[in-house]
Amino acid sequence: MSGYWAGILAILSINVIFAYSIYVTAAAGQLNLGGAGFQAIGAYGTAYATTTLGLPLWAGFAIAITLTAFVSFLIAFPVLRTRGVYMVLATYAFAQVVSGIALYTPALGGAMGKVVTEYVPVWPLIFSAIGVTFLVFYLMASRFGLAMRALHDDELVSTIMGVNARAVQVACFTIGGAIAGLSGALYAHHFAFVEAQYFSPLLSIFVLLFVLIGGTQTAWGPLIGSVFFTLVPEFLRLGGSSWRYVIFGAVIVAMMILRPEGIVTRTLVAKLSPSRWFAKKPVAQEASLER
């Protein structure tokens, strides 16, 4: 595998994991525009644990995931009091505070960034991405996933039907936080360097775009969305054009007009599902004859 493709696969794997962390909350109807903040906690957590404290790699990952999940759990309670645009802004503000703290704390490298000594090659990244993908697919197929989808579609009705909205949303935030922490830790160890400027608002915006362009209805959405977002600019780069982000922006606008619910929707999955190929033909014709 050439270095170029290894680099793209590494970024793609991190993006897929990161996108799933945001997807888990978005699937329950909560938009998180602070993804970069959660990823930064994971990245800085493992960077501090392994490089400064000298702990082994597995401990670094454990600390990154637990710490991010714990912070997400704590921040979930106040943040979930807000709705809609306010929720978007609250998570955005949270990410700004996190990157501000990283920039201001000398122990975390400040504006200079922090070098991470332990290196993780590209294969564990790919396997982690596959693992997280399966995990989220399993989650969405479970009873818990059903509750998430119900909350996404109508919070009031699902509460009436007995879904504990607050508990599900806090759980989603925590799970999302843990996955974001994993993506941050993988990022820190693969690129061996973390800096606060990387975890910018633009990163939060992009990861939310992965999810929204991919579609929040099914677990295929973030996978397709992050592949789309990682590979399309690369292919446009192959064209050697400085217009690639202009074209890319136009593609985003066009996507929202043509497929406002994202690339992958429930109906699309149903249409492409293999079980349909073997299913009997619908009985609609006979029904109409009877009438």
């Binding site: 978007v88 579609d153 929204l212 890319f248 922006g249 606008v253």
Partner: peptide, 18 residues
């Protein structure tokens, strides 16, 4: 649905890039 208000937001991010 709950993410409906995000649609113009996403389009505006597209315009930001353009």
């Amino acid at each position: 649905d709950a993410t409906e208000h995000a649609i113009p937001l996403v389009s505006s991010i597209g315009f930001l890039l353009v």
